[in-house]
Nucleic acid binder design. Structure first.
Lengths: 236, 236
DNA sequence: CAACCTATATTGGTCATACCAATAGTTGCC
DNA sequence: GGCAACTATTGGTATGACCAATATAGGTTG
């Protein structure tokens, strides 16, 4: 008899720390380039020994998420889009277009939105709304809202409570964000488009908040179709 | 001018230990299944602290060459096909379940089916039907139909004419097929389930042939829900 | 005798503390 | 102003102790 239950095994403490750090990075609370808290401080804050903290951090270093710099600190590494990212390989090897990417995202993200609507808890909603505010702030201060945009979509993924979903989405956004920013940037040039996108995001959050999977699905669908159409008209 | 020279920097001690262990494994002095010297002993032999030894070993564990077993020792892991597969890494690192995988497939494949219905040409239909026949044949000859099943789903992906879709799907099936065949196999045990699956595949093909995206979407949805439910009930 | 429990040894996991080593920023001398 | 030495910060290593899981051996019990 195979169980879907989370194994009871109390995980190693270092792995629990690892999970927390991973989550921070996945959610975008720690963005590439950010400096981590010193190990001694982390140790104090979390109430575990520095040894354990180091084990967790080392794991992330090996996996390529962090970089050690002796005498300076530990930093979130910008994902090496060229090597590990299957999407980047696909885009180079085959000749995939931005449109192809968006098509696949359509399936992934609509489904994710529906799942999120079913499972999101308060904390998830909080993160969603936070990323919305951040995006407004970024735009207001005359920067592109791309970073917060990524945070938003990752927050949706995270709300699904599905690690595979998070993993796949991460691949997409690592690529979109650090790979072909230039193309994506064009979408954010006009204020009226940003306005529209913000509105769409709001609708998605609303649906998730209401725990209405169908509405969340459709709201996400409208959003991605909007972006998709933008790029379709772009190159004619 | 890029040099092939080794950087002069004297490496971290833990990395030197790491290199030695790696070499032992690479040379085959340590074969899969072998037990490593206890950390304390290694520490004594190499004349470095156990801390350092552990750092080196942990690195190898993360990279998948070694396995920790508390109370027993550290063992050389038998290399696994799924090592290069990002999904496999996710399944290990996070604790993703088969259900998580299927949920994500739900989004990906339903969308793919709809796209396929729009774009499939004669050749694509041909491959779809071929994989269906192959599956029947495999089952008739008393083998599991898993291989042909994979072929079918990949054929749907190909019909989308979307390289990104193909790439992502490939990842999934590389993993499903080589990774957790055992679990998947249970689905194919009972003839009546195979019958049902074959019927569902037929419906999907039919919808794609008719170029009816909505019907294809729903047919695929029914199929995956069926499989999903099977695994959900499996472990109660 | 077989099965089961228990004590003990082995071994990885965690903790605490101290010190080494690289780096950045500051100070002070010329 | 510019260079050199000092200092604070932070990752890297060293010890030594103890915790936690596992295996093994030995004794107890049916």
């Amino acid at each position: 008899m195979k169980l879907p239950l989370k194994p009871i095994k109390p995980k190693r403490i270092s792995d629990q720390v690892f999970d927390q750090l991973t989550e921070l990075i996945a959610r975008g609370e720690l963005k590439p380039g950010d400096k981590l808290m010193p190990e001694r401080e982390l140790s104090a804050v979390l109430g575990v020994s520095r040894t354990t903290i180091r084990n967790a951090i080392n794991k992330l270093v090996v996996l390529g998420f962090l970089d050690h710099k002796q005498g300076q600190g530990t930093f979130v590494r910008l994902p090496d889009v060229r090597d590990n990212n299957p999407l980047a390989i696909a885009m180079q090897t085959e000749d995939a277009t931005l449109e192809d990417l968006l098509e696949v995202r359509m399936g992934l993200e609509c489904n994710a939105a529906a799942l999120a609507a079913r499972r999101a808890v308060e904390e998830d909603i909080h993160f969603l709304e936070k990323s919305l505010e951040e995006m407004k702030a970024e735009v207001a201060s005359d920067r592109l809202g791309t970073e917060a945009d990524v945070s938003f979509h990752m927050a949706v993924s995270y709300a699904t409570k599905n690690p595979v979903q998070v993993r796949i989405m991460r691949e997409f956004y690592d690529f979109l964000f650090y790979g072909i920013n230039e193309n994506l940037a064009r979408l954010y040039e006009k204020p009226e488009r940003i306005e529209e996108i913000l509105f769409q995001h709001t609708q998605i959050i609303h649906a998730i908040k209401k725990h209405d999977p169908d509405e969340a699905y459709e709201a996400m669908e409208r959003h991605i179709i909007y972006v998709l159409n933008f790029f379709k008209n772009q190159d004619l």
